[in-house]
Amino acid sequence: MIVTRGLSRSFGRVEAVRGLDVEIGAGEIVGFLGPNGAGKTTTLRMLATLLRPTDGTATVAGHDLLADPRGVRRAIGYVRQGGSADPTRPVREELELQASLYGLRPPREHVARVCEAFGLTGLADRPPAALSGGQRRRLDLALGLIHRPRVLFLDEPTTGLDPRTRAALWDHVRRLREEGTTVLVSTHYLEEAEALYDRVLIIDGGAIVADGPPSALKSRAGGTLGDAYLALTADA
């Protein structure tokens, strides 16, 4: 579903992502781990067509990133680190715009559907500024999933959430697994990787340093996933 070949991005002299070669199959739920500044967001933004690679290429859902960005965009959902809703506009209006831009007809019905799925029904007339952190995160998910994408990119969806809200978000990801959605999720939380993901990619300094099921990484490190993580990533 996602294939990258030497995918790279530099910002001036900073090589944020260096020659990524990754293959992710349909329906895999993959955790993307790594310290701050490792290149997770840069990778996800390239795969979401927001950032042009300085080298290499990738296909997402069968569409080439550079040759067919619109094909990629139709197939993916992207939930940005830090949210993506206008804090001043009612939830309903933001979702209606999103539905319209994905060509969903009639927008209202699709908005009602995602509001139901993400527990936003009673909140649709509020602006995000009047929502709690967890409610805002659910809105971000609803915005990214309204068109039922086959591939979903989540950038640190659980950072800063309290444990209960985080667990609720995990449930949403588990539901996506049942629907066969391919999901690439960046996170700092190791316990999340153990609980949720089929496979983890660990990135450090812009390069993949480990790739496999959580159990395999643990046994290789002869300890917990935390031991594996600390052994593989450099001291920051």
């Binding site: 927001l50 139709r74 830090g82 949210g83 993506s84 809703a85 804090p87 831009l101 915005l143």
Partner: peptide, 17 residues
């Protein structure tokens, strides 16, 4: 400027619009 800071612009740019 506001849409860039709130992430709205990135959200719109990810759609096929």
């Amino acid at each position: 400027v506001f849409d860039r800071q709130t992430g709205v612009l990135e959200r719109l740019r990810v759609t096929p619009a």
